[in-house]
Structures are given as structure tokens and as C-alpha cells.
């Protein structure tokens, strides 16, 4: 198990629509992400980055090809298996998508409620600890509406990391943030993931954050065009 790499894709092809409207967005994609590796996925709009991310995140059913994510074969996975896999992946979206009626701490604790073995006090303690790690120790009991955009995205980072996922998938996490907050968020994400040894696949257009990557993968027209070997 420990030797298996977290993300392994072979010949993944994916199309939307039926018949004449069928539009192929991924063609024979192969991708490997090693344990602890931080990979940036770039490319123009419509190049298939987001579709690839949703397939790896088990948010969509596979069509063709093979994918093994955190040891789970996706090609023939049932819905329940995909749901179970998702709980082992940390997601960070363009917008924070926090639940507006829960405080920062309760939002983070939601990621822990899916696991047994922790009681409410332990969940809240872990969530508070994680929020301190993203620099929000003074804001744990605030509702998202009372936080700035950068702070909300940091709560989202804490939520993605708190359950110690085996993989983090992020889609343009800096898109809605100014330069300084964006830098702060991705560096936090990188540092925390490094400490947990969690690999990250991050889709971005933002040239300002390329420096956090171990490796940059570019996509165009549904294919991976350039895969430089890991710089580490």
C-alpha cells in the first residue's frame, strides 16, 4: 500500500454529450503524482483541466481508461465507493463554499464528522487547532459572513486539511483573492501539505503562484503537452 502512488491515470478519455454533439475533452491522458508531490496543472480554458480534476476527485463517473486514486480503482467504481473515496480527498474550490450558518470552527469540524472515533469535543479541538495553523486562531467562532475573502479561503484550506486527506485537489484557489491573500493561502497550503506529506494537484491560471510547485503539467486540447520531471 505504502508504495502505491496516490494518483495514477492511464489512457483516460472523456467526452461530453451524445451523437453529433459529442465533444471529447480528454484524450489518452496519463498522469502520475507521487506521495508528497505538489503538481500544478495549467492550460487555457477548455483544455480539460477541470474535467480531469473532477475525475480524479471521483466527482464524475469514468468513461474510458484506468485510474487508481488512493488505492481505489475508479473505472468500475460504484457510487458508494466514489463517495467513500471523496471523504479521503481534501477539496478546495474557487469560491470557499463554506456553510453560511456554521461558524469557521463548525465548518472545519464538518470534515471530521464523517469519521468515527472522534467525539464532538475532539472534533472541535482539532478544528480549532487547524484554524490556528492557518492563522485564524482569533476567528474560530465567527460566521463566514464576518470574515474577509482571504480568511474564508483559509478556512476552506483548514477544512480540506483537517481530516488528514490522502490527496488535495484545488481548483483556482486564488481566483477570487488579491495578490497578497492569494500568495498567503497557497503558501499555507503548501507548507501544511508538506508537513502532512499530502500530495496536491492544483489547477491554476495564476502565474504568481507557480513557485510552490514541484512540477508543472500543462494541458491543451484534452492532452497533457508537457511533463517536466520533478525538480526535487
Amino acid at each position: 500500500m505504502a508504495q502505491t502512488c496516490p494518483v495514477e491515470l492511464h489512457n483516460v478519455t472523456f467526452a461530453y454529450g451524445e451523437g453529433e454533439l459529442r465533444r471529447t475533452v480528454l484524450r489518452d491522458v496519463a498522469l502520475r503524482i507521487e506521495a508528497g508531490e505538489i503538481v500544478l496543472l495549467t492550460g487555457p480554458s477548455g483544455s480539460g483541466k477541470t474535467t480531469l480534476l473532477t475525475l480524479i476527485g471521483a466527482l464524475r463517473a469514468m468513461q474510458q481508461g484506468e485510474a487508481r486514486i488512493l488505492g481505489q480503482e475508479l473505472a468500475a467504481a460504484r457510487e458508494a465507493e466514489r463517495v467513500a473515496l471523496r471523504s479521503r480527498i481534501g477539496f478546495i474550490f474557487q469560491s470557499h463554499n463554506l456553510l453560511g450558518f456554521l461558524t469557521a470552527r463548525q465548518n472545519v469540524a464538518m470534515a471530521l464528522e464523517l469519521q468515527g472515533g472522534l467525539n464532538e469535543a475532539e472534533r472541535l479541538a482539532r478544528a480549532a487547532e487547524m484554524l490556528s495553523a492557518v492563522g485564524l486562531a482569533d476567528h474560530i467562532d465567527k460566521l463566514p459572513a464576518k470574515l474577509s475573502g482571504g480568511q474564508r479561503q483559509r478556512v476552506a484550506v483548514a477544512r480540506a486539511l483537517v481530516a488528514e486527506p490522502g490527496l488535495i485537489l484545488a481548483d483556482e484557489p486564488t481566483a477570487a483573492l488579491d495578490r497578497a491573500s492569494g500568495q498567503e493561502v497557497v503558501h499555507l497550503l503548501r507548507d501544511l501539505a508538506r508537513r502532512q506529506g499530502t500530495p496536491i494537484l492544483l489547477v491554476t491560471h495564476d502565474p504568481r503562484i507557480l513557485d510552490i510547485a514541484d512540477r508543472i503539467v500543462a494541458m491543451e486540447d484534452g492532452r497533457i503537452t508537457q511533463t517536466p520531471s520533478p525538480s526535487a
Partner: peptide, 10 residues
């Protein structure tokens, strides 16, 4: 562990 064990649900 690169891959944490499958989680036990509540």
C-alpha cells in the same frame, strides 16, 4: 503512509 487506510464511518 502515502495512502491513509479507508476511514471507518461514524
Amino acid at each position: 503512509l502515502a495512502i491513509p487506510p479507508t476511514r471507518r464511518g461514524a
